[in-house]
Design a protein around this nucleic acid. Structure first.
Lengths: 225, 225
DNA sequence: ACAAGGTGTGAAAATTTCTTTAAGAACCCG
DNA sequence: CGGGTTCTTAAAGAAATTTTCACACCTTGT
């Protein structure tokens, strides 16, 4: 479920966009000015921003530049200006796409999907990492060519870790992503235990892990070699 | 140096695009049909594809779908069709952007840059300072390229110091910001000790700090070099 | 119904980090 | 130069977090 933030002051257009995008796979949050937008950004973690350039309390470009200082979240600009220089300035301010009004909702939806798809594709096929071979489609995992049996939970955890290898994933994030199914409370220790089981199966010396490392006070990371 | 592959059969347009994009930061390889394109793709590793939909020996869309089975390389479609359905089909086939002819070369360049930027941005959160690289999002810290492990408190202190580098922060301010969680009293010396630990990890000669300097009677500062 | 493996729970042990203490060094100012 | 203040440093104890283990529950297939 992707989270989209829409900043659009025009009521009818805003509602139309919400309707066009809100679906089973995406949830749209709508704000009508920069102030609301900033608050929403601080509160939630969005997968995509759709930003009208002309807002009642300022320019969306300012917000864009501010965001780009700290985040790489995809941003689509929305505006009545189809002046060439406006487009260039918008894109160079850090936008990923630029749509000029009027536009068809079908095109908007397609461009939104294109941005959301970004970066999710490369997980096709087997993943070869120093000494390991992970194939999440076939559920086949090897360590130095030797097959290793992993349970479902272990696979989900390994997948999240490996797909984000090199970055530290907070315990909370891992609990969210790996135990996403039920809204039930899950003991935090379930994570620790699953980590241990993975280490026992994958690490040479489970008590001195080389790959699945713990980041004290934060979470875990899969170290890139 | 980014590598761009251009598939465009129109001679004049192709040359124009090459001129517009070929620069110090990007190298353009040009092909005039699908066959050449496939060969170029197998031979080289490209950072971006610009694909004309109408090519003499077939549709660029077919090539796009084929590429998308194994690769997430950014693709910009180029075409004379500005029919809404064409755009939607193109994007849903896996394109990241879609430009209809005629277009300005400045806009093309801006959209190309927007696509190339993606993937290089994620490390934009990193702060590069003389000899150091601090990435507070990924919690990755380097000294002359060598990773340094920092604890949570050390990270918080470093962040406050570095974000305000050049200015002297009173001890009281640092205690407030770094130990903001509990309203409890914290021994002032906790700060001194954390400073020492940071120095031990970051300074070349911890007893003679070059960066994390003491401002006697006031507090500490991160010296800009 | 039984066996086998997967999963979550709770509690103790181990580890890492933080705070406090205290002694000595460095600094500022008269 | 001397005295009071402020900072540095080491080490011990406290606190927080993670590891590890044993066991119970559940599902699945036999």
């Amino acid at each position: 479920m992707k989270k989209i933030l829409l900043l659009e002051d025009d009521g009818a257009l805003g509602r139309g966009i919400c309707l066009a995008l809100d679906s089973g796979s995406a949830a749209v949050t709508r704000c009508e000015n920069l102030l609301q937008g900033r608050q929403a950004l601080e509160a939630g973690d969005f997968d995509l921003l759709i930003l009208d350039v002309n807002l009642p309390d300022g320019s969306g470009l300012d917000l864009l530049r501010q965001i780009r200082r700290t985040s790489a979240v995809p941003v689509i600009l929305l505006t009545a200006n189809d002046m060439e220089t406006d487009i260039v300035v918008g894109l160079e301010s850090g936008a990923d796409d630029y749509i000029t009004k009027p536009f068809s909702l079908a095109v908007l939806r397609a461009r939104v999907n294109a941005q959301l798809r970004r970066g999710t594709l490369p997980q096709a096929g087997a993943l070869e990492l120093a000494g390991f071979s992970f194939d999440f489609d076939r559920m086949e995992f090897r360590k130095h060519g030797v097959p290793v049996e992993l349970s479902k939970t272990e696979q989900r955890l390994l997948r999240v870790l490996v797909e984000n290898r090199g970055t530290t994933l907070p315990r909370e994030t891992l609990l969210d992503r790996v135990w996403s199914d039920g809204a039930e409370y899950v003991d935090e220790n379930a994570l620790s235990v699953t980590v241990k089981r993975l280490r026992d199966k994958l690490e040479d010396t489970p008590s001195k892990p080389q790959y699945l490392k713990t980041v004290y006070g934060i979470g875990y990371t899969w170290a890139v070699k």
